[in-house]
Design a protein around this nucleic acid. Structure first.
Lengths: 110, 110
DNA sequence: AAGATGATGTAGATAATCTAAGTATGGGCA
DNA sequence: TGCCCATACTTAGATTATCTACATCATCTT
């Protein structure tokens, strides 16, 4: 019934940047964390996550390096750059603005 | 600087259905109304609006008929169907769920 | 007569996400 | 030893929503 997808289109960059803001994390963990923090509502598919990470890296908003994960495997750890922090601010503000605007329409008395 | 588009992808159907919930309205007026109610934040392009209306009509969520607009011109008036009302409920609930989940991530103390 | 505004329409581009594969490593277990 | 499972990353191709950029036509104003 309808289209209950796992994400709202256009918000994944924001979610990733925010998740990285306390400190570096590898891709797999980012996906798990978004899912956990959102109360298992947001589902980040690998086919969405990894291309998004590459995109963000290409924009210069995150920087990657290989390191050992908690489980002893090699994993690609991502950290916010200064530009990434500014981008996070900007995307968070934009989300605020747009979601508030949508709520004005949806929560109209009518 | 980022991508400040006029809409959040995936929310236009909801916005249209909600706008039609008090009563029938023609396409042009729907676009104006969404823009006004959202405080001029949401911009509904004609190239997004009309295809969306056709889509919704095809799904059976709205029904159209030609009639005279307030200005005396012919216009296509759209009204919610019963199925459309159910769809509105469903999409509103889904938006609630997803936007709340996103806010959990974005507003994390971190 | 021209120009602005209302009103609808569509073709083609863009871009984000999903589907659905695939590869590889390490741990647990029979 | 062999097998499966969870972790971890990658990518090609499809889907789909929205945007850009037109085009058309009517009415009202100047």
């Amino acid at each position: 019934m309808g289209k209950p997808s796992g994400l709202v289109q256009g918000t994944l960059d924001l979610l990733i940047l925010k998740t990285l803001s306390p400190g570096a994390m590898h891709g797999w963990a980012i996906g798990r964390r978004i899912q956990q923090v959102s109360g298992e509502v947001l589902q980040v598919q690998q086919g969405s996550l990894y291309p998004a990470l590459h995109r963000l890296e290409q924009q210069g908003w995150i920087r990657a390096k290989w390191a050992e994960s908690e489980t002893g495997r090699q994993a690609r750890f991502y950290a916010l750059t200064a530009a990434g922090r500014r981008q996070l601010e900007s995307e968070a503000a934009n989300w605020s603005r747009l979601s508030a605007a949508i709520n004005l329409v949806v929560n109209e008395a009518g």
